[in-house]
Amino acid sequence: MAMLAAGIAAGGPGPAARAAIDTPHLVVSDATGTLSQGDLGRLAGQAEALLGRVLAFWSADCATDRLGKIAVVFDAPRRGAYSSVFYWDTANGRRVRVVRVFGFAETPQMMAHKLTSAVFPQKDKLIRNLMGTLAEAQVGNPLTFPRCGLDGDDWVRALIEAKALVPLAGLGPDHEAWGMKLAAGGQVTVFDRAKQHAAYAETESFGGHLFRTHGIAGLKRLQALSQGRERPFREAFGADLADLEANWLAALAATAGERQGPAARASALWKADPAGACAQAQRQAHGPR
């Protein structure tokens, strides 16, 4: 998920908001105006620690000297849902990387994903989400979308059984292919939650497959090469996207017997309510918020 913004202050902290807190790589603020300076400091420390895990996983640098610190803005949940978004903004005439975190009373969701997007800015939504969902699965919150307390591979097995799998080549740069659209004010909203969940679960599963077969170096090579050309999968991995997709699905089929229980749970949730499968899985894993 992503969001465009006209300015960091838009919809941001009001008069009651506490002063922003600097960490080595972040500038952390409260858009709700409800946090004490001590609570904001605690969240800032947790955010810096999570970024540290993201950087360690990718063996990457935050590029603070080149791009400046990442602005992390803690905000209220959107329509009761926890999530995070990454976008570029402008402050004092300079572009700023912003990760806005919706919901922080419990463990934030999608924060490792969006911090990865900030560390590796990427226009291609497929490549951006391959890396982001992988980082969330490895060092983030297991309850977060699109895992929702289960495993991306098991969601994909459920999609295959339901004949709802979306070909990876169809997951283009347009938001509509992901069940999303650009709304008034520049915010990206979801119009097809089932399609969005399917698309993101597939990218997590496919990204995990690439990680297991080609390692961190292969994914970082894909990210670097994609800055100058469109979807350079062959240059990065020695095979076109279609062949990599076939290998991924074959690997899932080969291990299906080992995951019958979890895959059956994902399948039952998907069959009952594709649009609500993630929320129901989260409730089963964690109980109602």
Rank of each mutant, 00 (worst) to 15 (best):
F191M: 07
T255R: 15
W248D: 10
S36L: 06
A169W: 03
V119A: 04
G207M: 07
V98A: 04
H286T: 00
P146A: 09
E176H: 09
G68D: 10
W88R: 08
L55H: 08
M111L: 15
F206R: 03
L126E: 10
T255W: 01
A254V: 04
D89F: 02
L182C: 01
F191S: 09
L210P: 05
A239F: 07
A264P: 02
L171D: 10
K181Y: 14
S36D: 08
A279W: 00
H113P: 04
L219H: 06
D124H: 09
P173F: 01
T116V: 07
G261E: 13
E161M: 05
I127A: 08
A135T: 15
D124Y: 00
L210M: 06
K195R: 15
A49S: 14
P274V: 05
F120S: 01
R53F: 02
A135G: 08
N141R: 01
P142H: 12
Q37I: 08
R259S: 08
L143N: 07
R283V: 15
G257P: 04
K271F: 05
A272G: 04
Q196F: 12
G218I: 06
Q187M: 13
V101I: 14
D240K: 03
M180T: 09
P288V: 11
L4P: 02
T213K: 09
A263S: 15
R212N: 12
A184F: 13
N92I: 00
F74R: 02
F233Y: 15
D75S: 14
G218A: 09
F237Y: 14
P288K: 10
A224T: 11
A264R: 14
A2H: 11
F206N: 03
A164D: 14
P146V: 12
A162L: 09
P288G: 03
H25A: 08
D243L: 13
F233S: 06
A105P: 00
